[in-house]
Write a protein that binds this DNA or RNA. Structure first.
Lengths: 247, 247
DNA sequence: ACAATAGTGTCTATTAGACAATATGCG
DNA sequence: CGCATATTGTCTAATAGACACTATTGT
Protein backbone atom coordinates (compact mmCIF):
# COMPACT_ATOMS: atom_id res chain seq x y z
CA UNK A 1 0.00 0.00 0.00
CA UNK A 2 1.11 3.48 -0.74
CA UNK A 3 1.48 5.08 2.66
CA UNK A 4 2.23 2.01 4.68
CA UNK A 5 5.00 1.25 2.26
CA UNK A 6 6.03 4.84 2.67
CA UNK A 7 6.18 4.54 6.45
CA UNK A 8 7.92 1.23 6.23
CA UNK A 9 11.02 2.96 5.04
CA UNK A 10 10.28 4.69 1.78
CA UNK A 11 11.29 8.27 1.59
CA UNK A 12 10.01 9.73 -1.67
CA UNK A 13 12.77 12.34 -1.59
CA UNK A 14 15.16 9.43 -1.86
CA UNK A 15 13.51 8.47 -5.15
CA UNK A 16 14.41 10.16 -8.38
CA UNK A 17 12.27 13.28 -8.45
CA UNK A 18 8.89 12.91 -10.11
CA UNK A 19 7.37 16.00 -11.61
CA UNK A 20 3.61 16.30 -12.08
CA UNK A 21 2.24 18.51 -14.80
CA UNK A 22 -1.17 19.19 -16.25
CA UNK A 23 -1.63 19.51 -20.00
CA UNK A 24 -4.79 20.91 -21.50
CA UNK A 25 -6.49 19.92 -24.73
CA UNK A 26 -8.55 23.07 -25.28
CA UNK A 27 -11.03 22.81 -28.14
CA UNK A 28 -13.17 25.46 -29.75
CA UNK A 29 -14.93 25.97 -33.03
CA UNK A 30 -13.58 28.77 -35.18
CA UNK A 31 -13.71 29.48 -38.86
CA UNK A 32 -16.02 26.55 -39.41
CA UNK A 33 -13.57 24.01 -38.06
CA UNK A 34 -12.58 22.33 -34.84
CA UNK A 35 -9.46 23.90 -33.39
CA UNK A 36 -7.06 23.13 -30.61
CA UNK A 37 -4.93 25.55 -28.65
CA UNK A 38 -1.20 24.98 -29.15
CA UNK A 39 1.79 26.90 -27.92
CA UNK A 40 5.18 26.94 -29.50
CA UNK A 41 7.94 25.86 -27.17
CA UNK A 42 10.56 28.50 -26.49
CA UNK A 43 13.03 26.25 -24.75
CA UNK A 44 14.73 22.90 -25.06
CA UNK A 45 13.87 20.14 -25.39
CA UNK A 46 11.69 20.27 -28.46
CA UNK A 47 12.24 24.01 -28.73
CA UNK A 48 10.30 25.38 -31.67
CA UNK A 49 7.84 22.51 -31.71
CA UNK A 50 4.20 23.02 -30.94
CA UNK A 51 2.80 21.56 -27.74
CA UNK A 52 -0.28 21.52 -25.58
CA UNK A 53 -0.47 24.26 -22.96
CA UNK A 54 0.42 22.97 -19.53
CA UNK A 55 2.79 23.19 -16.64
CA UNK A 56 3.70 22.07 -13.17
CA UNK A 57 1.11 21.81 -10.48
CA UNK A 58 1.72 24.22 -7.64
CA UNK A 59 1.71 23.55 -3.94
CA UNK A 60 -1.78 23.69 -2.50
CA UNK A 61 -3.39 23.66 -5.92
CA UNK A 62 -5.91 21.03 -6.92
CA UNK A 63 -5.59 19.40 -10.34
CA UNK A 64 -8.63 20.96 -12.06
CA UNK A 65 -7.55 24.29 -10.64
CA UNK A 66 -4.10 23.87 -12.16
CA UNK A 67 -5.64 23.04 -15.53
CA UNK A 68 -7.88 26.10 -15.43
CA UNK A 69 -4.94 28.28 -14.45
CA UNK A 70 -2.75 27.02 -17.27
CA UNK A 71 -5.53 27.56 -19.75
CA UNK A 72 -6.21 31.07 -18.47
CA UNK A 73 -2.53 31.93 -18.60
CA UNK A 74 -2.15 30.79 -22.18
CA UNK A 75 -5.32 32.36 -23.50
CA UNK A 76 -4.81 35.57 -21.61
CA UNK A 77 -8.32 35.28 -20.25
CA UNK A 78 -9.04 35.34 -16.56
CA UNK A 79 -12.83 35.38 -16.40
CA UNK A 80 -13.48 32.37 -18.57
CA UNK A 81 -14.24 30.07 -15.69
CA UNK A 82 -18.02 29.98 -16.04
CA UNK A 83 -18.24 29.48 -19.78
CA UNK A 84 -15.60 26.80 -20.14
CA UNK A 85 -16.36 23.16 -19.60
CA UNK A 86 -13.30 21.36 -18.26
CA UNK A 87 -12.89 17.71 -17.37
CA UNK A 88 -10.09 15.30 -16.70
CA UNK A 89 -8.94 13.26 -19.67
CA UNK A 90 -6.20 10.81 -18.72
CA UNK A 91 -2.70 10.55 -17.30
CA UNK A 92 0.53 9.73 -19.04
CA UNK A 93 3.60 8.56 -17.25
CA UNK A 94 5.82 6.54 -19.56
CA UNK A 95 9.34 6.73 -18.09
CA UNK A 96 10.95 8.29 -21.15
CA UNK A 97 8.19 10.61 -22.24
CA UNK A 98 10.33 13.55 -21.13
CA UNK A 99 14.03 13.11 -21.90
CA UNK A 100 15.27 14.80 -18.74
CA UNK A 101 13.36 13.36 -15.85
CA UNK A 102 10.30 11.45 -14.84
CA UNK A 103 7.26 13.55 -15.65
CA UNK A 104 3.71 12.36 -15.07
CA UNK A 105 1.20 14.45 -16.95
CA UNK A 106 -2.46 14.66 -16.11
CA UNK A 107 -4.37 15.85 -19.13
CA UNK A 108 -7.56 17.87 -19.14
CA UNK A 109 -10.08 18.49 -21.84
CA UNK A 110 -11.64 21.95 -22.19
CA UNK A 111 -14.41 23.11 -24.49
CA UNK A 112 -15.68 26.58 -25.06
CA UNK A 113 -17.38 28.63 -27.70
CA UNK A 114 -15.55 31.54 -29.30
CA UNK A 115 -12.40 31.54 -27.25
CA UNK A 116 -10.35 34.58 -28.21
CA UNK A 117 -6.98 34.61 -29.92
CA UNK A 118 -4.48 33.46 -27.34
CA UNK A 119 -1.68 35.59 -25.97
CA UNK A 120 1.56 33.67 -25.71
CA UNK A 121 2.51 33.27 -22.06
CA UNK A 122 5.96 34.16 -20.80
CA UNK A 123 7.26 30.68 -21.37
CA UNK A 124 6.06 30.29 -24.95
CA UNK A 125 7.25 31.74 -28.23
CA UNK A 126 3.80 31.71 -29.74
CA UNK A 127 0.26 30.49 -29.12
CA UNK A 128 -2.56 29.95 -31.56
CA UNK A 129 -5.55 27.88 -32.58
CA UNK A 130 -4.81 25.04 -34.97
CA UNK A 131 -7.23 23.10 -37.09
CA UNK A 132 -7.29 19.51 -35.89
CA UNK A 133 -7.19 18.41 -39.52
CA UNK A 134 -3.77 19.80 -40.27
CA UNK A 135 -1.64 19.61 -37.19
CA UNK A 136 2.05 20.31 -36.94
CA UNK A 137 4.44 17.89 -35.31
CA UNK A 138 3.91 18.01 -31.56
CA UNK A 139 6.37 17.81 -28.68
CA UNK A 140 6.62 14.81 -26.35
CA UNK A 141 3.61 12.48 -26.57
CA UNK A 142 1.21 15.34 -27.07
CA UNK A 143 -0.06 13.86 -30.34
CA UNK A 144 -1.36 10.88 -28.39
CA UNK A 145 -2.93 13.08 -25.75
CA UNK A 146 -4.61 15.23 -28.37
CA UNK A 147 -5.90 12.20 -30.26
CA UNK A 148 -7.32 10.88 -27.04
CA UNK A 149 -8.99 14.20 -26.32
CA UNK A 150 -10.59 14.35 -29.74
CA UNK A 151 -11.87 10.83 -29.41
CA UNK A 152 -13.33 11.67 -26.01
CA UNK A 153 -14.98 14.84 -27.24
CA UNK A 154 -16.53 13.08 -30.22
CA UNK A 155 -17.85 10.31 -28.05
CA UNK A 156 -19.26 12.60 -25.39
CA UNK A 157 -21.35 14.48 -27.91
CA UNK A 158 -23.31 11.29 -28.31
CA UNK A 159 -24.59 10.86 -24.81
CA UNK A 160 -24.11 14.19 -23.04
CA UNK A 161 -25.24 17.73 -23.80
CA UNK A 162 -21.61 18.75 -24.27
CA UNK A 163 -22.36 20.27 -27.67
CA UNK A 164 -24.11 23.15 -25.94
CA UNK A 165 -20.75 24.05 -24.37
CA UNK A 166 -19.48 24.83 -27.87
CA UNK A 167 -22.45 27.02 -28.66
CA UNK A 168 -23.23 30.40 -27.15
CA UNK A 169 -25.63 31.20 -24.36
CA UNK A 170 -28.53 31.08 -26.82
CA UNK A 171 -28.38 29.13 -30.05
CA UNK A 172 -30.50 27.77 -32.85
CA UNK A 173 -30.95 24.12 -33.64
CA UNK A 174 -28.98 24.70 -36.84
CA UNK A 175 -26.07 26.11 -34.89
CA UNK A 176 -26.17 23.07 -32.64
CA UNK A 177 -26.19 20.86 -35.68
CA UNK A 178 -23.17 22.76 -36.94
CA UNK A 179 -21.33 21.82 -33.74
CA UNK A 180 -22.05 18.14 -34.28
CA UNK A 181 -21.11 18.31 -37.92
CA UNK A 182 -17.86 20.10 -37.17
CA UNK A 183 -16.74 17.86 -34.33
CA UNK A 184 -17.80 14.64 -35.97
CA UNK A 185 -16.78 15.70 -39.44
CA UNK A 186 -19.98 14.41 -41.00
CA UNK A 187 -23.09 15.91 -42.59
CA UNK A 188 -26.31 15.44 -40.67
CA UNK A 189 -29.84 15.53 -41.96
CA UNK A 190 -31.31 18.91 -40.90
CA UNK A 191 -34.90 17.79 -40.53
CA UNK A 192 -34.22 14.60 -38.63
CA UNK A 193 -31.65 16.29 -36.41
CA UNK A 194 -34.12 19.03 -35.54
CA UNK A 195 -36.83 16.63 -34.48
CA UNK A 196 -34.40 14.42 -32.62
CA UNK A 197 -32.94 17.25 -30.53
CA UNK A 198 -36.37 18.43 -29.45
CA UNK A 199 -37.36 14.88 -28.54
CA UNK A 200 -34.55 14.40 -26.02
CA UNK A 201 -35.84 15.52 -22.61
CA UNK A 202 -33.82 18.33 -21.05
CA UNK A 203 -31.33 18.79 -23.87
CA UNK A 204 -32.49 22.26 -24.91
CA UNK A 205 -35.24 24.55 -23.72
CA UNK A 206 -36.94 27.24 -25.68
CA UNK A 207 -36.27 30.91 -24.91
CA UNK A 208 -39.42 31.99 -26.75
CA UNK A 209 -37.28 34.21 -28.94
CA UNK A 210 -36.11 33.96 -32.51
CA UNK A 211 -33.08 35.23 -34.37
CA UNK A 212 -33.23 38.88 -35.45
CA UNK A 213 -33.04 37.97 -39.09
CA UNK A 214 -33.09 34.92 -41.30
CA UNK A 215 -30.00 33.13 -42.48
CA UNK A 216 -27.36 34.89 -44.58
CA UNK A 217 -28.67 33.19 -47.68
CA UNK A 218 -32.33 33.39 -46.80
CA UNK A 219 -34.75 31.33 -44.82
CA UNK A 220 -37.08 32.03 -41.92
CA UNK A 221 -35.98 33.27 -38.50
CA UNK A 222 -35.00 30.36 -36.29
CA UNK A 223 -36.17 29.83 -32.74
CA UNK A 224 -33.56 30.32 -30.05
CA UNK A 225 -32.84 27.77 -27.35
CA UNK A 226 -30.65 27.54 -24.31
CA UNK A 227 -29.04 24.49 -22.71
CA UNK A 228 -31.48 22.38 -20.71
CA UNK A 229 -30.92 20.60 -17.40
CA UNK A 230 -30.18 17.13 -18.73
CA UNK A 231 -26.78 15.67 -17.86
CA UNK A 232 -27.21 12.61 -20.03
CA UNK A 233 -29.02 12.36 -23.32
CA UNK A 234 -31.65 9.69 -23.47
CA UNK A 235 -31.95 8.43 -26.02
CA UNK A 236 -28.44 9.21 -27.20
CA UNK A 237 -27.51 10.80 -30.52
CA UNK A 238 -25.43 8.12 -32.13
CA UNK A 239 -22.94 8.73 -34.86
CA UNK A 240 -23.46 6.69 -37.97
CA UNK A 241 -21.62 3.49 -37.04
CA UNK A 242 -18.36 2.95 -38.81
CA UNK A 243 -17.35 -0.65 -39.19
CA UNK A 244 -13.70 0.00 -38.38
CA UNK A 245 -14.62 1.40 -34.98
CA UNK A 246 -16.38 -1.73 -33.93
CA UNK A 247 -13.71 -4.35 -34.54
CA UNK B 1 4.61 25.29 -20.73
CA UNK B 2 5.90 22.53 -18.53
CA UNK B 3 9.47 22.06 -19.67
CA UNK B 4 10.14 25.56 -20.86
CA UNK B 5 8.97 26.80 -17.50
CA UNK B 6 11.22 24.15 -16.05
CA UNK B 7 14.23 25.35 -17.97
CA UNK B 8 13.38 28.96 -17.28
CA UNK B 9 14.43 28.45 -13.71
CA UNK B 10 12.17 25.87 -12.16
CA UNK B 11 13.88 23.07 -10.38
CA UNK B 12 11.28 20.49 -9.38
CA UNK B 13 13.52 19.37 -6.57
CA UNK B 14 13.07 22.83 -5.13
CA UNK B 15 9.33 22.20 -5.00
CA UNK B 16 7.77 20.33 -2.14
CA UNK B 17 8.13 16.69 -3.08
CA UNK B 18 5.23 15.19 -5.00
CA UNK B 19 4.67 11.48 -4.69
CA UNK B 20 2.90 9.54 -7.44
CA UNK B 21 1.04 6.37 -6.59
CA UNK B 22 -1.22 4.00 -8.45
CA UNK B 23 -4.35 2.64 -6.78
CA UNK B 24 -6.26 -0.26 -8.23
CA UNK B 25 -10.00 -0.88 -8.18
CA UNK B 26 -9.98 -4.63 -8.81
CA UNK B 27 -13.41 -6.12 -9.41
CA UNK B 28 -14.48 -9.72 -9.66
CA UNK B 29 -17.66 -11.69 -9.28
CA UNK B 30 -17.74 -14.10 -6.37
CA UNK B 31 -20.51 -15.67 -4.41
CA UNK B 32 -23.08 -14.20 -6.72
CA UNK B 33 -22.04 -10.63 -6.03
CA UNK B 34 -19.71 -7.96 -7.32
CA UNK B 35 -16.64 -7.69 -5.12
CA UNK B 36 -13.72 -5.34 -4.81
CA UNK B 37 -10.25 -6.12 -3.49
CA UNK B 38 -9.39 -4.19 -0.32
CA UNK B 39 -6.40 -4.34 1.94
CA UNK B 40 -6.32 -3.36 5.57
CA UNK B 41 -3.74 -0.71 6.34
CA UNK B 42 -1.05 -1.77 8.75
CA UNK B 43 0.46 1.65 9.32
CA UNK B 44 -0.50 5.23 10.04
CA UNK B 45 -2.29 7.21 8.85
CA UNK B 46 -5.62 5.46 8.72
CA UNK B 47 -4.07 2.34 10.20
CA UNK B 48 -6.69 -0.36 10.51
CA UNK B 49 -8.88 1.12 7.80
CA UNK B 50 -9.51 -0.66 4.54
CA UNK B 51 -8.06 0.82 1.38
CA UNK B 52 -7.55 0.09 -2.27
CA UNK B 53 -4.34 -1.76 -3.14
CA UNK B 54 -1.71 0.56 -4.51
CA UNK B 55 1.69 2.05 -4.06
CA UNK B 56 4.43 4.24 -5.39
CA UNK B 57 5.48 4.05 -8.97
CA UNK B 58 9.05 2.88 -9.37
CA UNK B 59 11.79 4.35 -11.50
CA UNK B 60 11.61 3.14 -15.07
CA UNK B 61 8.19 1.66 -14.57
CA UNK B 62 5.25 2.68 -16.75
CA UNK B 63 1.93 3.43 -15.11
CA UNK B 64 -0.05 0.39 -16.29
CA UNK B 65 2.92 -1.75 -15.36
CA UNK B 66 2.88 -0.31 -11.85
CA UNK B 67 -0.83 -1.04 -11.53
CA UNK B 68 -0.39 -4.63 -12.68
CA UNK B 69 2.50 -5.08 -10.27
CA UNK B 70 0.54 -3.75 -7.31
CA UNK B 71 -2.38 -5.98 -8.14
CA UNK B 72 -0.16 -9.01 -8.52
CA UNK B 73 1.59 -8.30 -5.23
CA UNK B 74 -1.66 -7.99 -3.33
CA UNK B 75 -3.37 -10.99 -4.84
CA UNK B 76 -0.30 -13.16 -4.64
CA UNK B 77 -0.71 -14.03 -8.28
CA UNK B 78 2.05 -13.49 -10.77
CA UNK B 79 0.70 -15.06 -13.94
CA UNK B 80 -2.59 -13.21 -14.08
CA UNK B 81 -1.50 -10.82 -16.76
CA UNK B 82 -3.29 -12.41 -19.69
CA UNK B 83 -6.67 -12.95 -18.07
CA UNK B 84 -7.03 -9.59 -16.35
CA UNK B 85 -8.40 -6.58 -18.14
CA UNK B 86 -6.83 -3.41 -16.78
CA UNK B 87 -7.45 0.19 -17.78
CA UNK B 88 -6.79 3.63 -16.44
CA UNK B 89 -9.60 5.16 -14.44
CA UNK B 90 -8.73 8.70 -13.29
CA UNK B 91 -6.27 10.70 -11.23
CA UNK B 92 -6.74 12.34 -7.88
CA UNK B 93 -4.53 15.07 -6.57
CA UNK B 94 -6.38 17.22 -4.05
CA UNK B 95 -3.67 18.85 -1.91
CA UNK B 96 -4.88 17.42 1.39
CA UNK B 97 -5.91 13.97 0.28
CA UNK B 98 -2.95 12.56 2.13
CA UNK B 99 -2.26 14.28 5.45
CA UNK B 100 1.51 14.09 5.20
CA UNK B 101 2.53 15.26 1.79
CA UNK B 102 1.35 15.91 -1.70
CA UNK B 103 0.31 12.62 -3.25
CA UNK B 104 -1.13 12.32 -6.73
CA UNK B 105 -2.82 8.99 -7.29
CA UNK B 106 -3.52 7.49 -10.68
CA UNK B 107 -6.25 4.92 -10.36
CA UNK B 108 -6.70 1.82 -12.47
CA UNK B 109 -9.66 -0.42 -12.95
CA UNK B 110 -9.13 -4.18 -13.22
CA UNK B 111 -11.64 -6.90 -14.00
CA UNK B 112 -11.19 -10.60 -13.90
CA UNK B 113 -13.18 -13.76 -13.41
CA UNK B 114 -12.56 -15.93 -10.38
CA UNK B 115 -9.63 -14.13 -8.87
CA UNK B 116 -8.34 -16.18 -5.92
CA UNK B 117 -8.36 -15.21 -2.28
CA UNK B 118 -5.73 -12.55 -1.87
CA UNK B 119 -2.61 -12.91 0.21
CA UNK B 120 -1.89 -9.83 2.26
CA UNK B 121 1.34 -8.23 1.04
CA UNK B 122 4.10 -7.27 3.41
CA UNK B 123 2.71 -3.80 3.91
CA UNK B 124 -0.86 -4.82 4.72
CA UNK B 125 -2.46 -6.40 7.76
CA UNK B 126 -5.10 -8.16 5.70
CA UNK B 127 -6.51 -8.40 2.21
CA UNK B 128 -9.86 -9.69 1.04
CA UNK B 129 -12.75 -9.36 -1.37
CA UNK B 130 -15.59 -7.14 -0.21
CA UNK B 131 -19.10 -6.96 -1.57
CA UNK B 132 -19.62 -3.54 -3.11
CA UNK B 133 -23.01 -3.42 -1.40
CA UNK B 134 -21.66 -3.40 2.13
CA UNK B 135 -18.38 -1.58 2.21
CA UNK B 136 -16.41 -0.62 5.28
CA UNK B 137 -15.12 2.90 5.78
CA UNK B 138 -12.21 3.47 3.43
CA UNK B 139 -8.95 5.36 3.89
CA UNK B 140 -8.19 8.65 2.14
CA UNK B 141 -10.54 9.40 -0.77
CA UNK B 142 -10.73 5.78 -1.77
CA UNK B 143 -14.52 5.75 -1.46
CA UNK B 144 -14.69 8.31 -4.26
CA UNK B 145 -12.23 6.35 -6.39
CA UNK B 146 -14.17 3.15 -5.87
CA UNK B 147 -17.49 4.82 -6.68
CA UNK B 148 -15.96 6.16 -9.85
CA UNK B 149 -14.67 2.72 -10.78
CA UNK B 150 -18.05 1.09 -10.26
CA UNK B 151 -19.75 3.73 -12.35
CA UNK B 152 -17.20 3.22 -15.11
CA UNK B 153 -17.55 -0.55 -15.05
CA UNK B 154 -21.33 -0.36 -15.20
CA UNK B 155 -21.21 2.04 -18.07
CA UNK B 156 -18.65 0.10 -20.06
CA UNK B 157 -20.76 -3.03 -20.01
CA UNK B 158 -23.18 -1.14 -22.19
CA UNK B 159 -21.00 -0.46 -25.16
CA UNK B 160 -17.98 -2.74 -24.86
CA UNK B 161 -17.60 -6.52 -24.54
CA UNK B 162 -16.13 -6.02 -21.07
CA UNK B 163 -18.58 -8.48 -19.55
CA UNK B 164 -16.68 -11.32 -21.17
CA UNK B 165 -13.69 -10.32 -19.02
CA UNK B 166 -15.72 -11.34 -15.98
CA UNK B 167 -16.65 -14.69 -17.46
CA UNK B 168 -14.33 -17.63 -18.05
CA UNK B 169 -12.67 -18.66 -21.29
CA UNK B 170 -15.88 -20.32 -22.41
CA UNK B 171 -19.26 -19.32 -21.10
CA UNK B 172 -22.97 -19.68 -21.71
CA UNK B 173 -25.31 -16.86 -22.54
CA UNK B 174 -26.90 -17.33 -19.13
CA UNK B 175 -23.56 -16.88 -17.42
CA UNK B 176 -23.00 -13.72 -19.39
CA UNK B 177 -26.43 -12.52 -18.37
CA UNK B 178 -25.47 -13.24 -14.79
CA UNK B 179 -22.51 -10.87 -15.17
CA UNK B 180 -24.76 -8.07 -16.37
CA UNK B 181 -27.31 -8.72 -13.67
CA UNK B 182 -24.67 -8.76 -10.96
CA UNK B 183 -22.80 -5.65 -12.06
CA UNK B 184 -25.90 -3.65 -12.87
CA UNK B 185 -27.92 -5.00 -9.98
CA UNK B 186 -31.00 -5.57 -12.11
CA UNK B 187 -32.90 -8.57 -13.49
CA UNK B 188 -32.80 -9.02 -17.24
CA UNK B 189 -35.23 -10.88 -19.43
CA UNK B 190 -33.55 -14.20 -20.39
CA UNK B 191 -35.13 -14.59 -23.80
CA UNK B 192 -34.60 -11.04 -24.99
CA UNK B 193 -31.07 -10.94 -23.60
CA UNK B 194 -30.20 -14.15 -25.40
CA UNK B 195 -31.39 -12.92 -28.76
CA UNK B 196 -29.82 -9.50 -28.26
CA UNK B 197 -26.35 -10.89 -27.48
CA UNK B 198 -26.35 -13.08 -30.56
CA UNK B 199 -27.45 -10.16 -32.71
CA UNK B 200 -24.47 -7.97 -31.82
CA UNK B 201 -21.74 -8.67 -34.38
CA UNK B 202 -18.51 -9.93 -32.85
CA UNK B 203 -19.64 -9.97 -29.23
CA UNK B 204 -19.51 -13.75 -28.80
CA UNK B 205 -18.69 -16.59 -31.11
CA UNK B 206 -19.87 -20.15 -30.84
CA UNK B 207 -17.47 -22.89 -29.81
CA UNK B 208 -19.77 -25.59 -31.18
CA UNK B 209 -19.80 -27.19 -27.74
CA UNK B 210 -22.37 -27.35 -25.00
CA UNK B 211 -22.16 -27.66 -21.25
CA UNK B 212 -21.57 -31.19 -19.95
CA UNK B 213 -24.86 -31.22 -18.12
CA UNK B 214 -27.95 -29.10 -17.75
CA UNK B 215 -28.44 -26.49 -15.05
CA UNK B 216 -28.39 -27.44 -11.37
CA UNK B 217 -32.16 -27.24 -11.25
CA UNK B 218 -32.82 -28.73 -14.65
CA UNK B 219 -32.99 -27.45 -18.16
CA UNK B 220 -31.26 -28.31 -21.40
CA UNK B 221 -27.53 -28.11 -21.95
CA UNK B 222 -26.52 -24.64 -22.98
CA UNK B 223 -24.29 -23.80 -25.90
CA UNK B 224 -20.85 -22.51 -25.05
CA UNK B 225 -19.39 -19.32 -26.48
CA UNK B 226 -16.11 -17.47 -26.32
CA UNK B 227 -15.43 -13.75 -26.58
CA UNK B 228 -15.62 -12.42 -30.13
CA UNK B 229 -13.43 -9.84 -31.80
CA UNK B 230 -15.66 -6.79 -31.35
CA UNK B 231 -14.18 -3.91 -29.38
CA UNK B 232 -17.39 -1.92 -29.34
CA UNK B 233 -20.91 -3.26 -29.17
CA UNK B 234 -23.17 -2.03 -31.89
CA UNK B 235 -25.91 -1.66 -31.15
CA UNK B 236 -25.16 -1.18 -27.46
CA UNK B 237 -26.85 -2.99 -24.59
CA UNK B 238 -28.47 -0.16 -22.70
CA UNK B 239 -29.47 -0.32 -19.09
CA UNK B 240 -33.08 0.49 -18.42
CA UNK B 241 -32.91 4.29 -18.17
CA UNK B 242 -33.32 5.66 -14.72
CA UNK B 243 -34.72 9.16 -14.57
CA UNK B 244 -32.32 10.29 -11.85
CA UNK B 245 -29.33 9.48 -14.01
CA UNK B 246 -30.46 11.74 -16.77
CA UNK B 247 -30.96 15.01 -14.91
C1' DA C 1 -39.32 35.51 -58.63
C1' DC C 2 -35.87 32.46 -56.86
C1' DA C 3 -33.00 30.12 -53.69
C1' DA C 4 -31.99 28.75 -49.14
C1' DT C 5 -33.38 27.48 -44.75
C1' DA C 6 -36.68 26.33 -40.53
C1' DG C 7 -39.70 23.34 -39.14
C1' DT C 8 -43.14 19.50 -39.72
C1' DG C 9 -45.29 15.24 -41.84
C1' DT C 10 -44.95 10.58 -43.44
C1' DC C 11 -43.17 6.18 -44.39
C1' DT C 12 -39.93 2.19 -43.67
C1' DA C 13 -36.51 -0.59 -41.41
C1' DT C 14 -34.57 -1.65 -37.07
C1' DT C 15 -34.65 -2.42 -32.27
C1' DA C 16 -36.24 -3.05 -27.31
C1' DG C 17 -39.14 -5.37 -24.68
C1' DA C 18 -43.42 -7.99 -23.32
C1' DC C 19 -45.15 -12.36 -23.72
C1' DA C 20 -45.62 -17.03 -25.43
C1' DA C 21 -44.19 -21.56 -27.04
C1' DT C 22 -41.25 -25.53 -27.40
C1' DA C 23 -37.68 -28.58 -26.07
C1' DT C 24 -34.44 -30.55 -22.79
C1' DG C 25 -32.64 -32.35 -18.57
C1' DC C 26 -32.60 -32.52 -13.26
C1' DG C 27 -34.88 -34.02 -9.07
C1' DC D 1 -43.72 -36.69 -13.54
C1' DG D 2 -43.10 -31.78 -12.61
C1' DC D 3 -40.29 -27.93 -12.71
C1' DA D 4 -36.50 -24.95 -14.23
C1' DT D 5 -34.02 -23.46 -17.94
C1' DA D 6 -32.33 -22.79 -23.05
C1' DT D 7 -33.75 -21.23 -27.15
C1' DT D 8 -36.86 -19.49 -30.60
C1' DG D 9 -41.24 -17.10 -32.20
C1' DT D 10 -44.46 -13.31 -32.28
C1' DC D 11 -46.29 -8.98 -31.43
C1' DT D 12 -46.11 -3.93 -30.11
C1' DA D 13 -44.02 0.49 -29.19
C1' DA D 14 -40.22 3.45 -29.94
C1' DT D 15 -36.58 5.17 -32.80
C1' DA D 16 -33.42 6.26 -36.83
C1' DG D 17 -33.29 7.74 -41.18
C1' DA D 18 -34.99 8.68 -45.97
C1' DC D 19 -37.85 11.66 -48.29
C1' DA D 20 -41.24 15.16 -48.98
C1' DC D 21 -43.73 19.35 -47.97
C1' DT D 22 -44.85 24.09 -46.33
C1' DA D 23 -43.66 28.54 -44.68
C1' DT D 24 -40.49 32.32 -44.30
C1' DT D 25 -36.85 35.33 -45.49
C1' DG D 26 -32.68 37.25 -48.14
C1' DT D 27 -31.04 38.43 -52.76
Amino acid sequence: MDESEFLAGYDPRAYPAVAVTVDVVALTIRGGGLRVLLIRRAEQPHAGLWALPGGFIRPGEDLPQAAARELAEETGLSGLSDRVHIEQLASYGAPERDPRMRVVSISYLAFAPDLPDPRAGSDAADASWHSVDKLPQLAFDHDRILAHGLERARGKLEYTPLATAFAGERFTISELRGVYETVWGVQLHPGNFHRKILSVPGFVESTGETTESGGARGGPRAKLYRAGDARLLHPALLRPAREEQIR
